[in-house]
Design a binder for these strands. Structure first.
Lengths: 145, 145
DNA sequence: TATCTTTGAAGAACAATTCTCCAAAAGGAA
DNA sequence: TTCCTTTTGGAGAATTGTTCTTCAAAGATA
């Protein structure tokens, strides 16, 4: 994420290239994802953006998230059956706390590499992959004692 | 999974050790998971077991799945927001088709190993981890043309 | 057998997500 | 600018996966 406003312009362009428009609501939702370190849920994004757009509805948040996902501006991950949204950075592993549901990013250099050639033997065409480590975060580990 | 009936006995023992009972319904649900290669959903398990137990309710399936999960007899994985159940074999990667939602097991020897020591630096206590490769299965790849 | 506990069926309840409808706003053409 | 077409977003209902509640039946224990 070199330059934020530059990145936002890129996404706006991609939106228009698909015949969509960059609206204030969409911009605000995208910013909310980019600025949050916590992999927020749709509900959390809704609450945050609502501060600036009181008339915003949750359905709009969901619709926008789908669009952003298609554009590759965000990535959806499911934790405990609930969708969370990650900025679409280089692939990196996730630490997921099974107690407080926090999702922690690991640096991309800790991402394992796929055995591509072996996969090809399955006739499977990989698009992306995820590595999730489940366990207890330091805070919850403490709390459990 | 050396010997099926032996394994079922092991699980029954663990159930009783926790003050639960091995009932015909639970046995049928467990068998359904063990015998299915498709990582079935609760709904699919329900439909299959219903053939033998027409009075079985979906809620019972869910309750049983939770119990089996606690016993370590099955593992839950979420695909597209829907829970699916895997026999609890040695850790292995999953191929997930983004079009037909099929989940394909890879052999355990293709599972990557975690950089345990690096994880420890985060104060994170890992319990288990998952590797999921998303893409198109051979059939869906064909169908898309 | 009498008693205490665990179980599972049924359906209501719940929560996350999606759908439907429609009025308002944006973009393009004249 | 003005008209026309298309996209958008809001409101709330609907849908769907999952959980909860209640209660009678079955199992275990003494």
């Amino acid at each position: 994420m070199e330059n934020l406003s530059e990145y936002l312009t890129t996404i706006s362009d991609r939106l228009r290239a698909r015949g969509h428009r960059m609206t204030p609501q969409r911009m605000a939702i995208l910013r909310a994802i980019l600025e949050s370190p916590t992999h927020p849920t749709a509900e959390e994004i809704y609450r945050q953006v609502s501060a600036d757009f009181p008339m915003l509805s949750l359905a709009t948040v969901y619709k926008t998230l789908h669009v952003l996902k298609e554009l590759g501006a965000t990535r959806e991950l499911t934790v405990d059956g609930i969708s969370r949204y990650d900025r679409n950075l280089p692939p990196h592993p996730h630490l997921v706390c099974v107690r407080c549901q926090a999702v922690i990013d690991l640096p991309p250099e800790m991402m394992v590499t796929l055995p591509e050639e072996a996969l090809a033997g399955y006739g499977f065409h990989p698009l992306w992959y995820e590595v999730s480590v489940y366990g207890l975060c330091s805070r919850c580990l403490e709390a459990k004692k």
